[in-house]
Design a protein around this nucleic acid. Sequence first.
DNA 1: CTCCTGTCCTGCCGGC
DNA 2: TGCCGGCAGGACAGGA
Length: 281
Amino acid sequence: MPELPEVETVMRGLTPVMVGATIKTVDQRRADLRIPFPDNMKKRLEGRQVLSLNRRAKYMRIFLDDDNVLVIHLGMSGRMSIIDKGIRYSPQLHDHLILTLDNGVRLVYNDPRRFGMVFMTSAAELEHHRAFSHLGPEPLGNKFSGPILEERLKGKKTGIKQALLDQRVVVGVGNIYACEALFQAGINPAKQAYLVKGDKAEKLAAAIKDVLRRAIKAGGSTLKDYRHADGELGYFQHDFTVYGKEGEACLNCDCNVIKSGGIKRLVQSGRSTFYCARKQK
DNA sequence: CTCCTGTCCTGCCGGC
DNA sequence: TGCCGGCAGGACAGGA
């Protein structure tokens, strides 16, 4: 589920409750998610104060006062909830990790499919960790632009859609926002990646930024403090223009949808792509 | 190197 | 109604 905007929204929701707080207890309810939980995680976390949080790609990174970092990836189905002090809580199905803070707040990580990841590393080693060392630029950072995207796409003969999902090209873009950005840029998802250059690369980079920024804004503005009444963070109603809309009319559509079939679905590298064959060339 | 496929896991939805 | 196949927003390994 979560792509960059959702992870960003979850992180913004966690930040005010975690920063400055100390982790009092760790309730680890199984041994692993996609990979085993860190060795001695409970011992290594209990008593640690949280200094800060940030996000890199789709990973949340929680910096601790002993120079270690707790890294959380939500995978496909991971969710985070904040249970306020004094609220009754008993673990639900797929609640795998519960952190109780000294301010009385409980943080619950729930993940039915268990594609998520939790690991720890030292702050010094963080960027050299195998999860981070190969990553491309942050799309909302100042090191991302048309020319940089073009450079990263050089030599790639695969479809531009698949290339956008490659975290070495640009991070944080997942299946939904790849489709949405390509629609906005008017680029056919099957176009070979290396052919996206010049104005097209410029347009695509701008579309990626715009689509992600708008989604983050939606997450922040439709949710009070980024959280639902039940404490769940980061999941908000999107209004996608093409994703999941096979057969429907696209934005500002002037086709005869009955005749054209509307938005098309195709499978690329085993993942669904949605696009408009008329507007995306 | 690139590219493609399969895999991890559970839940849900549509068709028969 | 129940069962079954297909699909789901990610990342990685392995092989061509």
